[in-house]
Amino acid sequence: MSALRILVPVKRVKPRVNKAQTAVETAGVKHSMNPFDELSIEESVRIREKKSYPHGVSEIIAFTCGPPKSADILRTAMAMGADRSIHVETKEGDEIEPLSVAKLLRAVVQKEKVDLVVLGKQSIDDDAGQTGQMLAGLLGWAQATQASKVSFEGDGKGVVVEKEVDGGTETTRSHLPMVVTADLRLNEPRYASLPNIMKAKKKKIEKITAEELGVDLGKRLKTLKVIGKWKWKRKWILNMGLDGTSANTIFAEPPPRQGGGKVEDVDGMITKLKELGAI
């Protein structure tokens, strides 16, 4: 057995929609890495730092598929501890479906001889929750989704993962090579320190096209319309955007839920609960 080669796919989550809801706002909006992907970078770096895998980690490769600006989050991933990056560039506004991303990842896994892929469990823009499972299926590898704890057995082969399932947790044992997707409670991602941000600038981002990887990015799903209700809140990590900016995307305001006002006291609450037939 040799040292682990880990691949960490990350996604830049998109900007918000402007108040007029007519287009995607790109100017002056902070983009960020999908929070679940921060967890997967952190976990990969910890496997190296804690030497939890008996043969060590030889390389952590960050990957993204997205417009040129996605390089920002690759820099973030490298500042957190990834060694180098691979970037499949797409046009701004092009949506790449999970199945296509999984195919790109399969090609990268084979090219770079990766034995562990750690992804986030879902992206907070599309909320699909598919890419990791699709990749595992395409490769014929074991998968462990929604991981809250990952540990390696002494023989360097077995991987024990505690997963979040409905009503609690479930523990399974798999063998490398495998795919793991990170859930919220897997770890607490670190902040990139300034020296590490500076160091990350020297790390390499390799640009590669989908054609070179032999993957067709054709879409199977067409978004007919998106109806959104957008609020502006500075503190959210949720940078909202819309699925594509193609001509067939229509923006409209859905009927927002109206608050029903306040009651004075507990008796008032009970009266109103009865009125509304809730109790």
Partner: peptide, 16 residues
């Protein structure tokens, strides 16, 4: 299907 934590509702058509 809802996207963006339910802040937007997308209508999608599948060609599969």
């Amino acid at each position: 299907r809802p996207v963006y934590a339910g802040n937007a509702i997308a209508t999608v058509e599948s060609s599969d």
